[in-house]
C-alpha cells in the first residue's frame, strides 16, 4: 500500500432485490381445545354482560309464586332464591355488573398505569424515581384489603367500587410499561427518530406506546379475571352493588345462609364467577403465546 487510494474492486453487478420468502405462520390463536373452550366461555361472559339484562327469561327483581328456594327445573334451570326470584335471570342480569364493571376497572387501571409508566420510562431521572416509589407504595398494600378500605370508607355502590379497584389496579401496568419503555427507548430506531428531530411526544406516541401494547393487552385479560373475582369478593362482603340489584358476589352472599337447605342457591351462581375468571385467564395465556412471547 504505497500509492494513493485503491480503486473500487470490480464486482459483478448485483441483481435487483427479488422476492423474499413469506413470513412463517405463527401458531393459531385457538391452538388447543382448552384455549378454544376458554375463548367460547369468555365470549359468552362478554355477551351476557352486553345483552344479559335484555334477554332474561323472567324479571330478575320480582318474585314468582312457588319458586322460593325451589331446586333447578326445566322451567327454571338454576332454581329460585329465598324470595322466589328466578336465579338464572338474576345471574344473567348480574353479568352486566360483574363483567361490565370488571371491564371498566381494567380500562381505567390500564389507562392510568400506562400513562404513568410511559411518563416514568420516557422522562427517566428523578421523575422516574418519584413515580416508581409511589408505585411501590401502592403495591405495599394488599390489593383486596386496600380495595375494601376504599370501598368501606366511601360506602358500597358501583362508582365507589370502580374507584376502589382502580386505585389498587394501575401499578402493574405502570411497572410493565416503564420496563418496556426503558429498554425500547435505548434502541437504535428510537435514537434514529431523535436524530431526525422527533420530539419526546412523537417518540412516545410512535414508538414507546406501540411497543408496549401487546404486553398491556395480555395483562388486561389477566387483570380482567382478577377484577371479576375482586368485584364478586367485594359484593360477597357487602361492599358491592346493594340488594335487590343482582350481582354475582351479592347473590352468593344471599345464598350462603341457605347452603344446607338449598344447595343450588349457593353453588350455581358461583359457577359463572369461576368459569369466567378461568376463561379470561386462559384467553390471556393464548394471547400471550400468540403475540407477547416475542413482543419487544
Amino acid at each position: 500500500m504505497t500509492d494513493g487510494p485503491v480503486p473500487p474492486a470490480r464486482m459483478p453487478p448485483v441483481p435487483p432485490y427479488g422476492n423474499r420468502r413469506r413470513r412463517p405462520r405463527r401458531p393459531g390463536l385457538v391452538s388447543n381445545p382448552i384455549a378454544a373452550i376458554a375463548w367460547v366461555l369468555a365470549a359468552a361472559a362478554l355477551l351476557a354482560a352486553a345483552i344479559g339484562p335484555a334477554v332474561v327469561p323472567h324479571d330478575p327483581l320480582s318474585p314468582i309464586a312457588g319458586l322460593r328456594l325451589a331446586p333447578p327445573s326445566w322451567a327454571h334451570p338454576m332454581g329460585g332464591d329465598h324470595l322466589g326470584r328466578d336465579l338464572l335471570s338474576r345471574t344473567l342480569a348480574g353479568a352486566r355488573v360483574s363483567v361490565g364493571m370488571a371491564i371498566a376497572v381494567v380500562l381505567v387501571s390500564a389507562a392510568v398505569g400506562v400513562a404513568i409508566g410511559l411518563i416514568a420510562g420516557a422522562c427517566g431521572g428523578w421523575v422516574d424515581d418519584a413515580v416508581m416509589r409511589l408505585t411501590d407504595t401502592f403495591f405495599a398494600f394488599p390489593e383486596m384489603i386496600a380495595a375494601l378500605t376504599v370501598a368501606g370508607l366511601l360506602g358500597g355502590g358501583g362508582g365507589h367500587m370502580l374507584l376502589a379497584l382502580g386505585v389498587v389496579g394501575w401499578m402493574r401496568y405502570a411497572r410493565l410499561v416503564r420496563g418496556i419503555t426503558l429498554s425500547v427507548r435505548e434502541r437504535e430506531h428510537v435514537q434514529l427518530a431523535r436524530l431526525n428531530g422527533v420530539g419526546w411526544v412523537g417518540i412516545v406516541r410512535r414508538h414507546l406506546l406501540p411497543a408496549s401494547i401487546a404486553a398491556v393487552i395480555v395483562m388486561m385479560t389477566a387483570h380482567l379475571s382478577r377484577s371479576i373475582l375482586a368485584i364478586s369478593g367485594l359484593g360477597f362482603l357487602g361492599f358491592g352493588v346493594q340488594p335487590p340489584n343482582p350481582e354475582w358476589g351479592t347473590i352468593l352472599l344471599e345464598g350462603r345462609s341457605y347452603i344446607l337447605t338449598a344447595w343450588h342457591y349457593a353453588i350455581l351462581p358461583g359457577l359463572p364467577i369461576v368459569l369466567s375468571a378461568l376463561a379470561f385467564n386462559l384467553v390471556g395465556d393464548s394471547l400471550r403465546d400468540r403475540y407477547a412471547r416475542t413482543a419487544p
Binding site: R187, E188, H189, V190, Q191, L192, L195, N196, R206, H207, P210, A211, P296
Partner: peptide, 16 residues
C-alpha cells in the same frame, strides 16, 4: 444534519 447508523436493521421500528 442527518445521520445514518451502523446497523440498518436496528434503525427501524420492528413493529411497523
Amino acid at each position: 444534519i442527518a445521520m445514518v447508523q451502523q446497523d440498518p436493521a436496528a434503525a427501524l421500528d420492528p413493529i411497523f
